[in-house]
């Protein structure tokens, strides 16, 4: 039964000639290291938080001041990286429209395994002021696993730093296993994503 679970992905929405250009492997959960090593590594992870500088909504304007002299998030080891390959955190900056959600998923799946999600603003929690909008999703955690929510419309930079510190605590405690959760519940998340993203012209998993 377990063999069947890690089968190859069909990539059925891609054109037949494009299919062999893309990877069809499923994400696989990676087990932790031994107890003490994992603690040490988690400590390093918690103090070197590289987030993907990808502003998905209006909340992203509050992320930029983090790097200025006034808030100076560098002193906590928080730094923006411009590429998903090297970053470990994705910040959902407020409302995510269906079009942006597609990009969020692509970026999230391109990040490497210990990866965390921080979600800003009320829009990504319950829709916020866009709860009745035709293209804004109401609950981001149906589509990707979220570690920390920061409420507010929009949260101040201090609140964002507080959220980062919350994430640090979670990582140090070993609770932030979003990437493995995503890999284990891959079918659930994929079904939710495909339900609302109508033209799925990308592979099922963007390695």
């Amino acid at each position: 039964m377990k063999e069947k679970k890690y089968d190859i992905l069909p990539n059925s929405e891609l054109k037949a000639e494009d299919r062999d250009l893309f990877c069809d492997a499923r994400p696989v959960p990676v087990s932790k290291l031994n107890k003490y090593m994992e603690k040490l590594v988690n400590w390093a992870r918690a103090n070197s938080l590289w987030f993907l500088a990808f502003g998905t909504g209006c909340g992203a304007v509050e992320v930029r001041p983090l790097m200025t002299a006034r808030f100076d998030a560098y002193r906590y080891g928080i730094a923006g990286r411009p590429t998903p390959r090297q970053s470990g955190i994705i910040l959902i900056g407020g409302y995510a429209s269906v079009k942006t959600l597609k990009r969020i998923i692509r970026s999230y799946e391109q990040m490497q395994n210990p990866k965390f999600v921080i979600s800003l603003c009320s829009c990504s929690i319950n829709g916020g002021m866009y709860f009745d909008s035709y293209n804004t999703i109401n609950q981001i955690d149906k589509y990707i696993p979220v570690d920390v929510y920061i409420t507010g419309c929009m949260p101040r930079p201090e609140a964002i730093i507080a959220g980062f510190n919350k994430l640090k605590d979670r990582i140090k405690a070993g609770n932030a296993e979003g990437a493995n959760k995503y890999a284990e519940n891959f079918d659930y998340y994929k079904a939710n994503q495909k339900k609302i993203i109508k033209d799925w012209n990308m592979p099922d998993y963007n390695w």
């Binding site: 929690i125 709860f131 009745d132 909008s133 804004t136 109401n138 609950q139 609302i196």
Partner: peptide, 13 residues
């Protein structure tokens, strides 16, 4: 009806 569409398509918490 945008509210109804939203309720049908996106999950309300």
């Amino acid at each position: 009806d945008t509210l109804r569409y939203s309720q049908e398509t996106y999950n309300f918490r």
